[in-house]
Amino acid sequence: MDLSLNTRTEGDRTIVKVGGEIDVYTAPKLREQLIDLVSSGAYHLVVDMEEVDFLDSTGLGVLVGGLKRVRAHEGSLRLVCTQERILKIFRITGLTKVFPIHSSVDEALSATE
């Protein structure tokens, strides 16, 4: 399955809904999207991963890259994920301490620093 990306804005937040597989083949597409958003001034991102079927280290690298970019503008990058198989990867890598992970987009949108 390929990667699908949909973005919408809600106030000063930009929600990126990702679906499919984020791997070495598709991660460049997500990276471009995040770079484009930050370049266009979107510094508060919510990445909705509820429809992600697969995530590998390339995908993690892209998310960390995105986080570094928004932080450079004092922004934020929040994740929405309740899937155990995806959460496990964040736990193994210690990235649960780095990314705020929410159980719904609404929760992520209402979260403050």
Binding site: S57, T93, G94, L95
Partner: peptide
């Protein structure tokens, strides 16, 4: 570890 490699403290 992955965390160290990603230079999360960077």
């Amino acid at each position: 570890t992955v965390g160290e490699l990603l230079d999360l403290a960077g």
